[in-house]
Design a binder for these strands. Structure first.
Lengths: 190, 190
DNA sequence: TACTACTGACTGAGAATTCAGTCAAGACGG
DNA sequence: CCGTCTTGACTGAATTCTCAGTCAGTAGTA
């Protein structure tokens, strides 16, 4: 993908985190990307398309980002904690991703065409977490009374809820992390 | 309050659930309320005021609604379940309230002046839930190893996360309710 | 008459989108 | 190598559209 397009998508991600999907102005985006207004339409036919592509871009980037951060050989419990706590970190890219994800979730209530990709990403995320939970139970010899898929769904939904509270300044990062860690312990019975 | 004003506020609540706070158009609202465009400005000087009044309206309505739904003499555990599950029901008014709440949460990321009222409401909600948890522990003679405030924060954050998933069609109501019920059981150790 | 509730056409600002045209970099024949 | 043709990336001013907000005037009523 040509570098100018990437520059635009990166700028869009930055602006969405700052102003929200619905606060994104095409002119402002052009300025942020250091590009003319017209170029936005040359590469991405209209605002809606640009938004869709930006959301995909953010998703991909989050995937890559997540991969490289999780310690590879570590025990599954460590990996699970990393994976979930990664979403609640005071770092520019995490904030950008979380804010954009929250925006996506919120926008999906009113724009049905966003729902499918959103549901798919959620399913994938849940599955990854469920697999880690299974691995933990095996490694630690825990009894898995409850289906790991349910535990995973609860934990990821909690991450989303806590992220929103953190980003909207209702709680601070440290507290969000602490609450999340305790939920993991609760779910895994230890 | 004159009936025309109420009609406008009810229409606004309906539209916010359908299009979001940021998608609310004054003309569309007038049509939905069966009223002329100018009347909106006669009763509520501008869009921001109208929005504020609508949010108050929704809040009051939710308060009343919640009160009357929770069985008064019932054991605290029942009352807690009612209180939390009430937010995840397939009913017009609940949907309107949840959608508006989600919008408020999402908007707060980009509009700092919304943060204080939001934080306050969250604190109140957490406290009410925490008090119910304490009551349950007392009634059932449970050991309260973990602070009830933390359990309450996790449960209410989970409700928000699950509501968003439900409203954005990533899961259905029944599943959201089931997951929530299990979390309550987990948090209360039973 | 005077006051309040109300209407709906209108205005202006801010945004999205379009478009005519520039420019640099190959491609290709002579 | 030179000239010219073509193409894709790009610009920015012009255009069109969308809204919140205004206002002159009407209807009912006390």
């Amino acid at each position: 993908m040509p570098s100018r397009q990437v520059a635009i998508l990166e700028a869009a991600a930055r602006l969405i985190a700052r102003r929200g999907v619905r606060g994104l102005r095409m002119e402002e985006l052009a300025a942020e990307a250091g590009v003319s207004g017209g170029l936005l339409y040359y590469h991405f036919t209209d605002r809606a398309t640009l938004l869709r592509r930006t959301l995909e871009f953010i998703n991909d980037r989050a995937g890559a980002y997540t991969e490289e951060r999780i310690p590879d050989g570590a025990p599954s419990r460590t990996r699970l904690e990393h994976k979930l706590l990664l979403e609640v970190q005071d770092e520019a890219m995490v904030i950008e991703n979380s804010a954009a994800w929250g925006e996506l979730r919120a926008s999906a209530l009113f724009e049905p065409e966003l729902r499918d990709p959103l549901r798919n990403s959620t399913v994938v995320w849940n599955r990854e977490v469920a697999e880690l939970i299974d691995a933990i139970r095996e490694e630690e010899g825990l009894e898995g009374e409850r289906p790991s898929a349910d535990a995973a769904a609860r934990l990821t939904a909690l991450v989303e809820g806590l992220s929103q509270r953190w980003l909207s300044d209702s709680i601070d990062v440290a507290e969000a992390q602490r609450l999340l860690r305790e939920s993991i312990a609760l779910e895994l019975g230890s």
